[in-house]
Design a protein around this nucleic acid. Structure first.
Length: 808
DNA sequence: ATGTTCTACCTTTTT
DNA sequence: GGTAGAACAT
């Protein structure tokens, strides 16, 4: 479409509150663009306003928009904001997660994709159990080929867009893995299920191999917008390329524009296949002419922002970006060194109480940690202090065992050949079908190449009767629920499966019963509130009146292909849509459900740094700032890993608006044993002027519960900046001697006779330099010490040989 | 076939 | 320190 009138930004209320950078991003011409959006720079706002602007100015109709996010939450937010900005039908737009949109696409083109119309989606757990089952069937040595590792291998291949035949087998082990990958694919295909990677890969292949389909979508989607572009993997990038016209055709002739928004500094999912390099590739391959940096931060005070900037400047190969803020300096970043993880948690609670007195809502206080295991101490301290808190992460609703059981029954109603689900519940609750019977059944199924369900009739003897009864019951329920509502189906399944009964009899089963009852509610709200589920299913046909509109030939679109205006497209040929049950199951697989429903109460927020991405709080505590924890020991050996850890730290810091607290502890219980960690190297990468080092007013190891003084800290600045932690005036040992002759209170390590080397000491070694003793084992000539050296990592040393000098 | 104890595992994880 | 899966006993 062409424009007669020039666009006048100020005339549009949409543009009104935007700064110059943001407005220019929103108003870019319909060409490829990369927006480098720093933390807190209004990224989501730019993205949604861009869409709103495109629509309002008539450059594109809702059907011409393809907007991709990573999380359902982000997709929801975009839709909500959009419908608030414009009185339009957001349903016509393709806004969703990569996987949600792939699902939509594959439902519509399932024949081209060689999938049954009712294919079900395996989540990560399902995938693992499918692989385990496969390995058992083919007698794979699970010592040599752990199922988890196979899962990682298969997912990795798919994320790189590789089928078994594409993978190069450099060694015997890889060859075997590839073989299993192929067998796994066969199994999934036979059972009519797809995993997350397959959703992406299969839709990519349909687009790649079907010219008319691809060209149709290329013509349809005039504007392709991608959020969190730095987190895309190879396959996702290739997928996006399919929707945009090939570069050879020339940019202007293709008529569609890719608008990618991302921040290389916030790329924290490389370990999962994300490729920051996609940003540079995009600029090169799409010949991107418009790059805009959003560097104005609207979130944090400058002490916090400067800390983030300085930290991230230690990374190499950045695209380059420096955030600025108009908010004043604010409070300094407070740093606290605790004696134990317990004391650290206690100190935080004391600080939080103080904050609460200053009228900071608890929900504006967040505790961030590197790994989930760290939440426990904090939880205990908060619990003892009677302060409400909410832990994010962990099991989500649709991942709970009891819910997965119920879903397995439901899936069997929809597709009796789903062997994964079959095995999950054939003997749960226990109904006398043991491993032997199941093996028998599997043998028959394998021999005749059919599903477990179909093999039942051929199984003889007692096993046959028991399993036959199970299958018969399922068949009866399936018949009974013909024409029933989703709610009725679920209620009937819960009743007949015996799940509720089973959990009711269990001592600890009350929560599970409640969750199962909650499943009915989840289904209800899926049907009503969500108008049948935004990303999962089409509205009932008669409600919109046009489940499948044909594209006008005048726009150059293939009239034989569907416009797919419905979130969950009906079959391209038959117009067939999913049953409410099938749609609900899809919804359950793609949207794992909220973590805990205990929302509503004003509670302190606890989560991993990963989980905090995209969120913001007035006050943020980052805990466990220690070598080995943050940066994590598994990532700190190579530069790549370390830089990702640094980006993670950057994300953590930039979550805070007004106050930031960093803490580390001299000792920490991890995996059941006490560890002695050096403080994180990241402290050395923060601007000293922004920091305020807190010192405990009195020996903090005095007694559990009575520690911490409630915020009256002295301002004790510590050794010179930039020096490695261990080279600073060693204060930990001296600290110890000040009050407690026994050292670290209850956490006193085994003393070593003969030498004075003890865990917790900072020592000097002629070759390795300074380090902290982590543990001492054995006695006399056999005595060994584990020492974490600043420059050489962790080593075990024989004390009879190595000369270790304690530094005081 | 099922309930109980014991031993190995253990970053992060939007879908 | 906590959990999940396997060996073990009933």
């Amino acid at each position: 479409m062409l424009f007669e009138d020039p666009i006048v930004p100020s005339s549009s209320p949409l543009i009104a509150g935007l700064n110059a950078e943001q407005a220019s991003a929103v108003l870019l011409p319909a060409e490829h663009a990369l927006i480098l959006a720093g933390a807190g720079s209004g990224k989501t706002r730019v993205l949604t306003t861009r869409i709103a602007w495109l629509l309002q100015s008539g450059q594109v109709s809702p059907g011409g928009i393809l907007a991709v996010t990573f999380t359902n939450k982000a997709a929801r937010e975009m839709m909500t904001r959009l419908s608030a900005m414009l009185p339009i039908n957001v349903r016509g737009m393709w806004i969703g997660t990569f996987h949600g949109l792939c699902n939509r696409f594959l439902r519509a083109h399932h024949k081209l994709a060689s999938l049954p119309a009712t294919f079900q989606i395996l989540d990560t757990q399902d995938q693992l159990s499918a692989i385990k089952r496969l390995c058992k069937q083919f007698n794979v040595d699970d010592e040599r080929y752990p199922p988890k590792q196979l899962q990682y291998f298969i997912s990795g291949c798919k994320e790189d867009g590789q089928r078994p035949q594409d993978v190069v087998a450099r060694d015997e082990e890889t060859r075997k893995k590839i073989e299993l990958y192929a067998l796994y694919e066969e199994q999934c295909q036979r059972e009519g299920v797809v995993d997350f990677g397959e959703l992406m890969l299969r839709s990519y292949e349909v687009l790649r191999d079907n010219d008319p389909v691809r060209e149709h979508y290329q013509r349809r989607f005039r504007h392709i917008l991608i959020d969190e572009f730095q987190d895309t993997n190879r396959l996702q990038y290739a997928w996006i390329k399919m929707f945009s016209a090939p570069p050879l055709e020339g940019l202007s002739s293709s008529g569609n524009a890719v608008f990618a928004v991302g921040d290389d500094d916030q790329s924290i999912y490389a370990f999962r296949g994300a490729r920051v390099g996609n940003m540079a590739d995009f600029v090169r391959e799409f010949q991107v002419r418009h790059q805009i940096k959003l560097e104005q931060n609207y979130r944090s005070v400058s002490n916090i922002l400067d800390s983030a900037n300085q930290l991230i400047s230690h990374n190499t190969h950045r695209l380059g970006k420096n955030l600025r803020t108009d908010a004043g300096a604010g409070e300094p970043v407070r740093v606290y060194e605790a004696v134990s993880d317990f004391a650290e948690a206690q100190w935080m609670v004391d600080e939080m109480k103080q904050l609460a007195r200053e009228d900071v809502p608890r929900s504006e206080m967040a505790v961030l940690y590197r790994s989930n295991a760290q939440s426990r101490v904090v939880e205990t301290a908060l619990f003892n202090a009677g302060m409400p808190y909410r832990v994010y992460g962990g099991l989500r609703f649709f991942e709970r065992a009891e819910i997965k059981h119920a879903l397995a029954y439901l899936r069997l109603l929809e597709n009796p050949h789903d062997d994964t689900s079959f095995l999950r519940v054939v003997n749960f609750p226990p109904r006398g079908i043991g491993a032997r019977s199941i093996e028998q059944l599997q043998d028959v199924a394998r021999a005749s190449g059919c599903s477990l369900h179909d093999a039942v009739s051929a199984v003889t003897g007692r096993a046959g009767v028991a399993i036959g009864a199970f299958v018969a019951k399922l068949d009866v329920v399936r018949e009974q629920t013909e024409g029933s509502t989703l709610r009725e189906i679920i209620e009937l399944v819960l009743e007949h499966s015996g799940l509720i009964e089973h959990y009711r009899a269990e001592r600890e089963g009350q929560d599970r019963v409640e969750n199962l009852e909650e499943l009915v509610n989840a289904a209800e709200s899926f049907v009503s509130v969500e108008g049948f589920g935004r990303d999962a299913v089409a509205l009932p046909v008669d409600e919109l009146g046009k489940p499948l509109t044909q594209s006008p030939a005048s726009q150059g679109l293939d009239p034989n292909l569907p416009v797919l205006d419905e979130p969950l497209a009906p079959d391209a040929e038959t117009g067939e849509t999913l049953s409410p049950l099938a749609a609900f199951l899809t919804h359950a697989a793609l949207e794992s459900g909220d973590n805990q429903a205990q929302a509503g109460q004003d509670a302190v927020q606890l989560m991993t740094v990963h989980a905090a991405k995209g969120l913001e709080f007035d006050c943020v505590f980052i805990t466990g700032m220690e070598e080995g924890l943050f940066p994590h020991e598994n990532s700190m050996s190579d530069r790549e890993g370390l830089e990702e850890e640094r980006r993670l730290m950057y994300v953590a810091i930039t979550r805070a608006r007004k106050r930031l607290y960093l803490s580390h502890s001299q000792t920490r219980m991890l995996h059941g044993q006490t560890r002695y960690n050096l403080k994180s190297r990241f402290f050395d990468e923060l601007p000293e002027a922004c920091l305020k080092w807190l010192t405990p007013p009195q020996p903090a190891w005095a007694a559990p519960g009575g520690m911490g003084g409630g915020g009256q800290w002295q301002n004790g600045r510590r050794g010179g900046f930039g020096a490695p932690a261990a080279l600073q005036p060693a204060w930990s040992p001296g600290f110890k001697e000040r009050g407690d002759p026994k050292g670290l209170g209850q956490a006193e390590p085994e003393p070593d006779r003969g030498t004075e080397i003890r865990a917790g000491l900072t020592v000097f070694h002629n070759k390795f330099g300074e380090g902290k003793v982590l543990a001492v084992e054995g006695a006399g000539a056999d005595a060994r010490a584990q020492v974490n050296f600043t420059r050489h990592g962790t080593k075990w040393l024989a004390l009879s040989v190595a000369k270790l000098t304690p530094i005081t």
